[in-house]
Amino acid sequence: MGEQRGPTFYILAAFFGMFVIFLYGPIITIVILSFQGPQGNLVFPMNGFSLHWFRELFTDQPIGDIHGAFGRSIRLALMVMVLTVLVSVLAGLAYRRRFIGATALFYTAVASLIMPSIVISIGIGAGYELLGWTRTWYGSTLGAHLTWTLPFGLLIMFAVFNRFSPAYEEAARDQGATGWQTIRHVVLPIIAPSLIGVALFGFTLSFDELARSSQVTGDLNTMPKELQALQTNTVTPVIYALGTLTTLISMAVIATCVSTVLIMRARRRRHGSDAGQGV
């Protein structure tokens, strides 16, 4: 394929460029509009530049509870992240051997991924209602989010272990390592970069989740639900400021994950093999 670029390439490249503009254009608009002046409107033109609407965010709002929702969503996303990594790794390890119900569990996870979210939300909501339990962000909402993040985690672990050579473990076992030592010192370090990917899915998918949370959050809202409420009630650019802030957090999380993986890779390349150094 080393020949000259044909016109097809340039047409496709232009199409790709337009797609990227389509993908990022709207969010860039929102970011610009969130710096509207105090008299600014929901649409262009810009009425001066200011941080007014960000300041508004941190002062008390007439409706809703942005601060509380923000804190809850961050804490919830961290909980979902940790649980997604732990449960997915364990399940991934399980699938390297045969066990009863393996196929059924796999299809259940896939079904959980593609089931319309509203159905799951109604089910959990109705269950709590019938049991007389109180719906909370750290209980029912946590569970609802896990039905969305765990299947992603499991699929990533499948991809990881498909490429994982059992020779490393066999070598460790031959050297007398116990099962736990093999996992702790051989398997986990090798799959660590992928685990960061699982963590990224866990955190961001929970942080932005709306559909599965809709019937299960109870009295205290998560951030996406707060945003949904604001969307219908607010007529000022404060919602854009909130959107900018949320997007910034997501971007920071993505950047942290990507750079951690890159640093890990670079370190591995620098240190190379440590064969024989453990003697």
């Binding site: 969010i27 709306l210 996406p224 969307q231 959107g243 997007t247 997501s250 971007m251």
Partner: peptide
């Protein structure tokens, strides 16, 4: 990995 709500709004 960013918010669908914001992207819609």
């Amino acid at each position: 990995w960013t918010s669908n709500i914001i992207r819609t709004i």
